[in-house]
Amino acid sequence: MRRPASQQETALTRMVHRILLGLVVVVSILLLILWRSDNPRLERLRLTVADALLPSMSWFSEPMQFASAMTKDYRNFFDVYNQNRELRREIQRLRAWRDTARQLEEENAQLRALNNVRLAVRSTFVTGDIVADSGGPFLQSALVNVGARDGVIDGSAAVDGNGLVGRVVGVGEHATRLLLLTDFSSRVPVAIQPSGLSAILSGDGTTAPLIEFLESPDEVSPGDLVRTSGDGGVFPPDLPVGRLIVVPGGTWRVALAADFARLEFVRVLRYTPDIRIDRPGGLIISRPEREGPAPPAADGG
């Protein structure tokens, strides 16, 4: 017996819906597997979406940041006149310092020229606005509105006026994704001053990340400065990270120098490490590939 047309149509809708739901579930599970395996294609997709949506996101994030800052600083709002005077005074002082610094720099350059000193390439930086954050409890990250067109490279360090904030883990054309120091998967090699001991700063979702792999804890004390060590050649050395603190239970942590509560802009460093030759392989100069078989390597380097 044939079913009425309307019933057939409803059955067709239901079947299409079920097939689509199955497909969506399968695609979601595949995406989860790609996410867990840190697939670079997924990171590219993430940054492509961020690049495309960045202008629209700014429409929302800027007024919200403004409203949030107004709420936080409502006391300062009433004190704006005094702040303005204080800032103008500060500008005058800084101008005097700027002139002094310029004179010193010129003098320094002349002396260097006389001595024929060659310096390592200095770090340059690009400043960007934070336009989005992860928001949820799963990851501590942020999206910044500078990208590959501004010279940002993957792995670069990001700092605020006080210290290290995190590192670049994804670069789009116009957007960059930062992994904050507080994230569970953040690991940064650091040196503790004045002892000079090396350790790893390990994020654990709290405001004060853990210090791990510290060889001689007896040689450090609370209040010691923590700076990047430069090990691994990803971050420049001597970037301020924070100060050492000890929590009940004897665990060493770091009170971060960066002001995460007022983080609106970050400087992404464009750092190229010095070329260091610390093993025989470093003596081999890499050349562009030529046609034909490569000549055999000579013994004795």
């Binding site: 969506v24 979601s28 790609l34 996410w35 997924l42 989005a132 992860s134 799963f138 994704r177």
Partner: peptide, 25 residues
């Protein structure tokens, strides 16, 4: 629409760095 919910969930996962696929599922 199922596909509209999927698209929105995927964009959210990608933008907010949530586990991609977990949030949308």
């Amino acid at each position: 629409a199922l596909l509209a919910v999927f698209a929105l969930g995927l964009v959210r996962d990608l933008i907010t760095d949530a586990p991609v696929g977990g949030g949308v599922l």
